[in-house]
């Protein structure tokens, strides 16, 4: 491997369908972390995010990794999958992590790690957005609650009702008919959160849940999802300080350590 001078940086960029995150590392640790929405111009957004960053290695991950690698050919770019990136990021922050859950804008991933931190099994949700951040976003809009406070809002429920539909469209009509019957919207919000958690738990069980579980991705900001997960798993889940940055961080770590 090429030797790196002390001020040499390594960047990890995670280009998701909803947001793009950038983490820059130098020899001392995290130098910078930034986040921006993906919009319809992901490459333009990447360019803005990369800003004055010159030289150094860049590791791209996420849905747009290939596109990025093709468009930033003049830089030293390589790619890894989100699975690997989240595993590396979670493990860097919590070296004892054995299970990583990531609920992002449009997909959910569950990764099982060996004792030494190697990925040995993973699952991703199938084609539709059911059970992802998009589902919560859609439902928050339907209930006219800001997405950032949707979790707290749901935690104010006084009754647990089951929403059986996981399909975004059917769940919305189920919610609407519950509203029409006079159900408190907080309770409906709780029901929707329960639905997403139930689906996540099923995925977790498929790969096997070993403690500790690290919960990353944008949805990890939602306190109601965290609470319900802990209830269902019967164990605490660890939410990193910046859960949405874990993928970008993992990519940067990969660049630092080599693969």
């Amino acid at each position: 491997m090429k030797s790196r001078s002390k001020d040499q940086t390594v960047a990890g960029i995670d280009i998701g369908s909803r947001s793009i995150e950038l983490v820059v590392l130098n020899a001392d640790g995290i130098l910078r972390q930034l986040k921006t929405p993906t919009t319809f111009d992901p490459l333009g957004q990447c360019r803005r995010l990369m800003g004055e960053l010159e030289g150094g290695r860049v590791i791209a991950t996420g849905y747009g990794r290939k596109l990025f690698a093709e468009s930033f050919g003049q830089m030293d770019v390589s790619t890894i999958t989100e699975i690997q990136a989240y595993a590396l990021g979670a493990r860097f922050l919590h070296p004892e992590a054995r299970t990583v859950l990531d609920i992002g804008g449009q997909d959910t991933k569950v990764i099982s790690l060996s004792e030494t931190g190697k990925v040995f099994k993973f699952e991703m949700n199938d084609r539709c957005a059911a059970g992802t951040g998009k589902f919560l976003e859609f439902m928050a809009t339907a209930l006219q609650v800001p997405l950032e406070s949707f979790g707290e809002y749901a935690l104010r429920s006084d009754r647990r009702i089951a929403i059986s539909s996981m399909c975004t469209v059917f769940a919305e009509s189920e919610a609407t008919s519950l509203m029409a019957r006079g159900e408190r919207p907080e309770n409906i919000a709780m029901g929707l959160h329960m639905a997403i958690v139930q689906r996540t738990i099923a995925m977790l069980r498929r790969v096997g849940v070993s403690a500790p579980v690290v919960f990353a991705g944008g949805v990890a900001h939602n306190p109601c999802v965290v609470r319900l997960l802990e209830e269902q798993l019967g164990q605490p889940v660890i939410v990193p300080g910046n859960p949405d940055m874990v993928g970008a961080l993992g990519a940067a770590i990969c660049g630092k350590n080599g693969f």
Binding site: Y63, I80, T81, E82, I83, Q84, D107, K118, V119, F120, F122, M124, D126, R127, F259
Partner: peptide, 19 residues
């Protein structure tokens, strides 16, 4: 062809995993 991108990620992650 609609799931090609998703398949790519899963297959690539599997290849990374077996390295």
């Amino acid at each position: 062809m609609e799931d090609v991108e998703q398949l790519k990620t899963r297959v690539e992650a599997f290849i990374e995993m077996t390295r």
